[in-house]
Design a protein around this nucleic acid. Structure first.
Lengths: 219, 219
DNA sequence: TCACGCGGTTTGTGATCACAGTTTGCGATG
DNA sequence: CATCGCAAACTGTGATCACAAACCGCGTGA
């Protein structure tokens, strides 16, 4: 969990049962803890969170609305198995939104932010070396989100997180399949563009980071 | 309702109770039938759709996940009252997504599509003359959606519809306040750019249509 | 050996209920 | 006449239940 990220997203404690379930499931999906096509059951979810079916159903309903889960034929719940077209479309949405968010964040960026991103990036490199897919996905998203939070554009970030959510299981399948041992090279470019205050370079670095990262997703 | 639009969005009949409620409420919100801050109750929703609280709750949960409804203090459900910053942010998201969708649709556009858009636009002009805010919003969205459906980018269109949904009540408040009697000039430019096959002009026309239309929203 | 069919089990759905918190409206009091 | 207070009504929450449909596995038959 990343307690340091919370203050910018003004979500109150909101400790209702369905909200606990929602957050828990959402994190599992976004961080790639679940493979594509993993079947879920309302009773199973409820039991694993210690609640009844009702809050589990609401959380699932909410997550399906965001594309994090799908209803297979006749209402069975599962993580999505994306077609190649869908993957490419989601990647192009990332390529549209992320440079814009980065550009907005650039105006408000300061040294402490860049340092924080750098340390997250080092954790990301360690996850790669450890060959830990979940931690790799988690730190990678955290790297990006840390930057975008500075954009002060909650609606746009929310939309982007929806996209990440849909890609979660697919990214897990990818990063489990190809066991890379070298860090993605573009995070360094992002940090350099940030330090230089170069908007065009930053946009380009993000676009390539996103499209390169998802290039290998197409089966 | 627009039965002609259905085939491209491959949504099955899906006649469960919560889905009927979801679609009904969603349309009410997106088409501006509800003003910002309108309070809703689960029991009231259920009664007006002839179902119990359970499906009503699921539909509301799903709509709040999309930003169509908000939970006011201590769980009361209401349509959102957006701040100026949020309105501007949503407008800039529209300005980002809609030119992209239009550009993708341009490659696949044909004469029948343009004719259909033109006839929708005439219905839109009639709604303006009749000073019917709901029908104005409905035909305006239909004009745009008819174009974007051709982009064959369901995920991007889905994201955009989420944005429309969030703006629904606010647009209703606007178009009720300022009683315009002249059609927005940019739809004509969009049609001309489509006929000419001019990508740059089309992108520009959409960007100005979106930003001009929402310029008056800021209170 | 393989395909088919059938019954037990599991699954999502929707209704109902008890409960706690909030709002509301009426009446008493200054 | 205005203001405060309290009780009744209302609201969302979560649990439980009945039910129908889908699924799974085993056994039978070709």
């Amino acid at each position: 969990m990343q307690p340091a990220l919370r203050p910018s997203l003004p979500e109150p404690p909101a400790q209702s049962a369905h909200d606990r379930v929602y957050r828990g499931l959402r994190q599992q999906v976004m961080h790639g803890e679940l493979f594509p096509g993993t079947p879920l059951t309302l009773r199973g979810i409820g039991k694993s969170f210690g609640v009844s079916m009702t809050p589990a159903r609401e959380a699932v309903r909410r997550l399906t609305a965001e594309g994090a889960l799908t209803f297979s034929a006749s209402g069975r719940v599962a993580t999505p198995e994306l077609s190649n077209e869908r993957i490419e479309e989601l990647a192009s949405i990332r390529a549209l939104l992320e440079p814009e968010l980065a550009s907005r964040a650039l105006r408000r960026a300061h040294m402490a932010l860049i340092d924080r991103m750098q340390s997250i990036n080092e954790a990301n490199a360690r996850a790669i070396h450890r060959q830990d897919p979940v931690d790799y996905i988690r730190t990678n998203l955290e790297f990006h989100r840390t930057l975008y939070l500075r954009a002060q554009s909650p609606a746009m970030l929310g939309l982007l997180e929806t996209v990440w959510l849909q890609l979660g299981p697919t990214m897990r399948a990818l990063y489990t399949r190809l066991r890379r041992t070298t860090a993605p090279p573009h995070h360094r470019l992002i940090l350099e563009a940030l330090r230089a205050g170069d908007d065009a370079a930053l946009r380009l670095a993000l676009r390539t980071d996103v499209t390169q990262g998802l290039r290998h997703l197409v089966v």
